[in-house]
Nucleic acid binder design. Structure first.
Lengths: 341, 341
DNA sequence: TGTTAAAATACAAACGTTTGCAAAAGATCT
DNA sequence: AGATCTTTTGCAAACGTTTGTATTTTAACA
């Protein structure tokens, strides 16, 4: 490995001069800069990031915490998509991305802990928001810059990015109602995720606003996977008075739900309308193409990264939050009930 | 930040002793170890990974290179799934994962370059194999431990993990043939990816073995995305004598192909059988459920990580390779032609 | 040709570790 | 009690940078 000293020697200057050339300090004459740069060139010198980090006390790296093990995560396109946004922003800002992993909650925590205590990252992005999350607690305690994707429930000063999920769900449900549906089911994700809570709230508000009574028998919650959607839809359809439409809080779940409907010979959208969330790339290729709420996961990621990085750079002194827009992408899984009857 | 010195002072020993306690050196008496450990506990000490890296010349981190920008990548579940395997292995081995990104080929290269030259990673995993890849060249030149997912074409000594793609495609095509199909199309991925080349080869061999002549008009190649599959299938169906079955080299492409078939009112599998590759989670939820070759992306990732790490640790002195098994997952997108006629 | 100010560069300490070698302490033997 | 060996600990250099301060060089002026 070629070091700053060797460059210095070759250029006939001192190491400090080389260092200042690297940072393009005005204290060094142009003549010397040329000389040093040539030496660097000839030797194939590249600054050692580790040494630099040590003295600067900055690694230019941010750590990413995904839910649980990375296991379940990657099955859902939401995370990759958000990660894409994160990667874009970090790269733009000259930062690296370090993945934190673990095969259990404990391992996950231990992994994060070692990474931040070890000083390997300058900040952290928490890619989800759930109730009573020990990681969130840790992060605030450790006093390291971080931001999260999803609204925090503890109302401390925390950087976060989120959709307005209650409103988004409100509008989705409202859309169903505007299409003439009065009996509307809900297939939700796990209720300890605040995104699920919020969408549930929006659903409730839409029904209330339209004087539709809540019926617990057509409100389910499942894990964020297809199987959950499959089971939920089966239950939904075996209720004495099944809904004519259902709001599903995740496309993957919706895929499962569609499959269940097909298996039970109920036609979508003719006998059952479906609107769901996330607008994954495959939504367009479902049968029928899925009407879905686009949450702009990419922006969610990008902004989350921007928030931590600004925090790290000390640009913002107050915690900030950012709400990214959602929009319904209309496809063919919802039908107007008025037209039929 | 609490350092080794403060711990030393508190415990009444020298910094070097503390260091040796950390590494549990036998040279330190148990008594002293107790004392030092207590001091560490009380002060909440944690070793600084950066400083450690500097002297050890090891970061315990491996860099991941994905195709191009991370952009396209994450849309395809293959990469997340492989990443999952990588994450598992690295974690098991006490390594971290650093993502290398960039929004263009050049940026990608520059990003990788700065990361390895900067000494931020001990090794690298290249998640794909394509023809004339400048990155591959760089990696070998720089003389850093690395492994790749996918067979390298330049026959240098390179660690890699791969499926036996020619055989896998051979068997897939053979399966179609065994089901009575004689006219079989191919919808392939981009031909500068060696995985595509290999699967093409397997397809050709199967046809040759069964004395079926190759017909270029029903051989397409598209990008690894749904749209490509959509277009390819449209073309395939508008040929004067369309095939009764098609081998698709990626599930995502297959989704697009299915959609195209549906749009053109050709029934799957009745009028067109489809077998594809990768067996993504959603394959089961396609209409009809997709018969697909499972390539075990998780293992591919896990093994690739194992290979670099072994290399880094100097366990293996020779480059090694590892072939992971594939298996056809039979679902409902292929029908026997014999039964019909 | 000194004197002084400005510009350019060098010195050395610091960042938090690890580790070879030296030193001190304790044990064993005669 | 001294010599010798072993065990335990400490010293100091090193890893490759950055940066405050000191020093040298150059230029400008009288």
């Amino acid at each position: 490995m070629v070091t700053i000293k060797e460059v210095a020697e070759r250029a006939g200057v001192s190491p400090s001069t080389v260092s200042r050339v690297i940072s393009d300090s005005p204290r060094i004459s142009d003549e010397t800069k040329q000389k040093v740069r040539r030496a660097m060139e000839e030797l194939g010198y590249h600054p050692n990031a580790i040494a630099r980090s040590l003295v600067n006390r900055a690694t230019n790296t941010i750590g990413i915490v995904m839910p649980r093990s990375a296991e379940d995560v990657f099955l859902n396109p939401f995370f990759p998509e958000a990660l894409r946004g994160i990667a874009k922003c970090t790269h733009d800002e000259g930062f690296c991305v370090l993945l934190t992993t673990g095969n259990s909650d404990d391992e996950q925590i231990e992994s994060l802990l070692s990474v931040v205590r070890g000083g390997r990252v300058d900040g952290v992005i928490l890619m989800y928001s759930k109730l009573d999350d020990p990681i969130l607690e840790m992060l605030t305690e450790m006093n390291i810059p971080f931001s999260m994707i999803g609204r925090p429930t503890i109302s401390e000063d925390i950087n976060f990015v989120d959709n307005d999920n209650v409103n988004a769900a409100y509008e989705a449900a409202n859309y169903l109602i505007s299409m003439g549906h009065r009996r509307i089911g809900l297939i939700n994700g796990s209720l300890n995720l605040v995104v699920s809570i919020d969408r549930y709230e929006g659903y409730k508000r839409a029904l209330a606003k339209n004087k539709i009574e809540l019926d617990e028998s057509i409100i389910m919650s499942s894990e964020f996977v297809q199987e959950g959607g499959y089971e939920s839809m089966k239950k939904m359809l075996s209720v004495e008075n099944p809904p004519s439409a259902v709001l599903v809080t995740d496309d993957l779940i919706a895929f499962g739900a569609i499959r269940a409907a097909r298996d039970m010979k109920v036609k979508i959208p003719d006998e059952m309308s479906i609107i769901s969330f996330n607008n994954i790339p495959l939504a367009d290729f479902a049968t029928p193409p899925l009407t879905s709420v686009d949450i702009n996961a990419y922006s969610l990621g990008y902004k989350a990264a921007k928030l931590v990085i600004d925090d790290i750079k000390g640009k913002k002194h107050k915690p900030s939050c950012y709400i990214v827009e959602t929009r319904i992408v209309f496809r063919d899984s919802v039908i107007s009930k008025n037209n039929i009857s």
